[in-house]
Amino acid sequence: MDIGIGLPAGVPGAPPDVVVDWARRAEDAGFASVACVDRVRYDNYEPLISLAAAAAVTQRIELVTSILIAPLREVTTLAKQVASLDALSGGRLTLGAAIGARGDDYEMNEFSKAGRGDRLAEQLDRMVELWEDGTITPSAASRSRPRLLVGGASGPSLARMARSTDGYIHNGGPARGFARARDEVLTAWHEGGRPGTPQTWSMGYVALGDAAGAGRDYMLDYYAFTGPYAVRIADGLLTTPLGVRELVQGYADAGCDHLMLFPAVADPDQVEALASALGWS
């Protein structure tokens, strides 16, 4: 299992230099990827832009959107941006896409919330066609398209995943919940008659040491839209090295391919603290 780290681009008030420098520190510390969340009506940086900045200061680390709310975007310009970022980074991008869980991101948007699942399915099909046909792609790109993953564990979402992508991104939580979802992902893949095994990725949140309290406040704020579930989600915040190692072991045992640990605070020391908790230094 690969282990990636989130950029603090989703933490309100994170200074620009901290976000960019985070990517360099992550690469130095040995993480497999840097990842970004996506919101519109929130104090965060846009994920494709943030990953482009990260790409510019790193050489090998993978770049991941986890996830990008694709139905908020026009499909041809999105295809162009994604292809450009993948090309400019030397083929390091994994595009995780989903419909997004929050209604307010859609409220100011020209694309309606209704029908967003079907819209995402069309976007995924369309982007793959545009890329693979060479219609929208820089010709100097090292590959025809980035890896595509879909978030969302509902039946229709898994059907979309199996139709046109390479796998699934889980929304975090305990490893046993991931294991159950993974069974359904493999079933959807098999039902569709896709050969091989899909990629299954997941994520967690971390705030180690003194950052635990601030991290919890961030979680409660970021997940406030889930109402009564925010407290439970915040309870999943990893605040100790032991907690980190237990989660990592649980996910590895459950068959996860790539686990992304997102910071719940924008303190750059968290990168090394996490690497140390993982036993890398």
């Binding site: 229709p156 059907a159 199996a162 079933t187 569709g192």
Partner: peptide
Amino acid sequence: SGQTTTRHLGDFSRWF
């Protein structure tokens, strides 16, 4: 079950 059309509502839960 399913796959009659591409618009089928998937269900991939246990014993679906």
